[in-house]
Design a protein around this nucleic acid. Structure first.
Lengths: 336, 336
DNA sequence: ACTCGACGTGAAAACGTTTACGTTGCCGCC
DNA sequence: GGCGGCAACGTAAACGTTTTCACGTCGAGT
């Protein structure tokens, strides 16, 4: 039925299949007029080359795979958007596989992608070195995103959590704040850990006299609320709060507001992520914006390079995508 | 290099390639012990069948394509999650292509998917009947999502905007509200139009004496804020606002709060979508929750059926995914 | 004028599978 | 004991491309 093959086009244009292939791909080794005739025939028959056959002989799928964890919210959406954009620009398709709960599921998903993709974008909490070595064909170009594995032969790319956190602390210090509380993320969470590290570093280098004050949290709004109460109970009272993410900052603000604390005058509050909600709370939340789409795009770029030039592959590099300070009313009365 | 083919396995297991294929796929027509030996050999060599070769001969890609508009926010993320989950359950891969701005780009993306997918999930503002007829191979199973095309030979699935809006109006009426303002979405937007329709229907059937009051909006928070001011100027003053989406409802609430209006006592406010922010504004926003992930899953299910049984394909059906009323403090003082 | 190279074109091999079709050997039945 | 049937297995064709190679043919250089 409808499946018109290259042979049909060849017959229609009164040439051999080889010429059709040449005319439609490179265009070299075939007269302009012949090429023209072939193109017309192809258009007339609505010919579309059979992708699988081409993959088989070419060894190129023109597809990249993205293996992602079970993500909620707009982080995922932004990431895919960035990846898709960069992939489209390179004429590559995108095969995604999200929500694999355990390491086995991830491994299965990874195996299933075998041979369907030219390269892999991998972001998974299960992706430790052993896992990779076990499940990754070592000749498949791969870029790791937000992984704890630096170097180790793989390309990696992640958000500059340290840098962002340092920016925030510097901003708070510049605002004259002395006692800055940090609300931690869930234990073991890499992003949270890096943000904490940035906080410590910035304090150590810019204000060695300022105390390091830690409160527990788990990225949930509730835990921020509880931390807020703890802040209220402290003596001397802190004059700034830096939460490891926006949701906790928002929870904390709720607690402070209930206690009648004036923000930012009495206590400044800041978060990390720049979730959409951040600009709508009162006062609007100062936070760190991370360009997630760019994380995706850059990872895709890196992967593209690796695919196009497998020989001079830049392995072991670990790039970071910049984080940006967004000042709003919760830390600066000046900021409208 | 490493690419081990079925021949290698055959040699290793001392059988023919046909037996390997049989053992690894159906398992029929081959002794248990031979099968065992073959499996062992395959495992030893880390054999993975070449996907492209299999597609070529089988005419099945085990992949479905999702063509999506340029979406922001968690709607997209939820949708993909739902699709991916259902696809995984059926052992299908997911090829996504988002962010195609104009009809040409969409058409190109669609053509490029040709032959790589067994079926298509399509959500696109450009997908009118002519577009589909022009660019869709008519033998490719397809499910349309959130489209204005009902019937017309295609399967379609969309959010029950009417139903949701009716639920909300009924809720407001039940709360004793008489003068309910509706804040419209952008002109031409399908979801917005259906929600408005639901509002009109519910009023007409349950409270024919209540006035139909419309205010313009564009789904943006700003437009909700402006609408809020208009509400304040109305005499007699409305006692409830139903915004076509949450962001406008939030904007409206800001305007009312500034004017010292007590919510929900003086004016109740409600939205549509149940964005994450909805539960964090004060008072928490009553809204309609639409299970986006389920939209994706159900679409995938429908498509799966169509693929598995192309003969008895259910074409022309138009299913709707339910919307759910979520009552919070902005319409009910009782709701904590 | 003859050779040589370049160029356009066609025939055929190759890619790795699945599957239709033979072939073999075994078992049971008359 | 021969024969039919069946199950296990092998051979080879087919899927639709790309690409290598060979074969002209034509133009230019000696």
């Amino acid at each position: 039925m409808a499946t018109t093959t290259i042979k049909d086009v060849a017959r229609e244009a009164r040439v051999s299949v080889a010429s059709v292939s040449r005319a439609l791909n490179g265009g070299r080794g075939v007269t302009a007029e012949t090429s023209q005739r072939i193109r017309e025939a192809a258009a007339r028959l609505r010919y579309m080359p059979h992708a699988a056959a081409r993959m088989l002989i070419t060894r190129r799928t023109n597809t990249i795979g993205a293996l992602l964890p079970d993500l909620y919210g707009e982080f995922f959406s932004e990431l895919i958007r960035g990846i898709d954009l960069a992939a489209r620009a390179r004429g590559l398709h995108l095969l995604v596989s999200s929500s694999h709960d355990d390491a086995d599921a991830a491994a299965a998903a990874l195996r299933a992608m075998q041979g369907r993709v030219d390269g892999l974008l991998l972001m998974s909490p299960h992706a430790d070195a052993a896992f990779l070595h076990q499940n990754l064909p070592h000749d498949l170009p791969t870029v790791l995103m937000n992984t704890r594995l630096a170097g180790d032969g793989y390309c990696a790319l992640s958000v500059d959590n340290d840098g962002g956190a340092r920016l925030m602390v510097e901003h708070l210090l510049a605002g004259g704040h002395q006692r800055i509380v940090f609300i931690q993320g869930p234990p073991g969470n890499r992003d949270a850990g890096e943000r904490e590290l940035g906080y410590r570093e910035a304090l150590a280098s810019h204000a060695p006299d300022s105390p390091v004050i830690m409160l527990r949290g788990d990225f949930g709004e509730e835990s921020g609320y509880r931390a807020g109460h703890q802040v209220l109970a402290m003596r001397p009272r802190p004059d700034a709060v830096f939460a490891a993410n926006d949701m906790m900052a928002i929870g904390c603000m709720a607690a402070l507001r209930e206690a009648g604390i004036c923000m930012p005058e009495e206590i400044a509050v800041s978060g990390f992520d720049d979730v959409p909600m951040a600009r709508y709370v009162t006062p609007p939340l100062t936070t760190i914006e991370v360009h997630i789409a760019e994380l995706g795009s850059q990872a895709m770029e890196l992967l593209g390079e690796q695919i196009d030039h497998p020989d001079q592959a830049v392995t072991g590099v670990h790039r970071r995508v910049a984080a940006k300070l967004v000042v709003r009313g919760s830390t600066s009365a000046a900021a409208r």
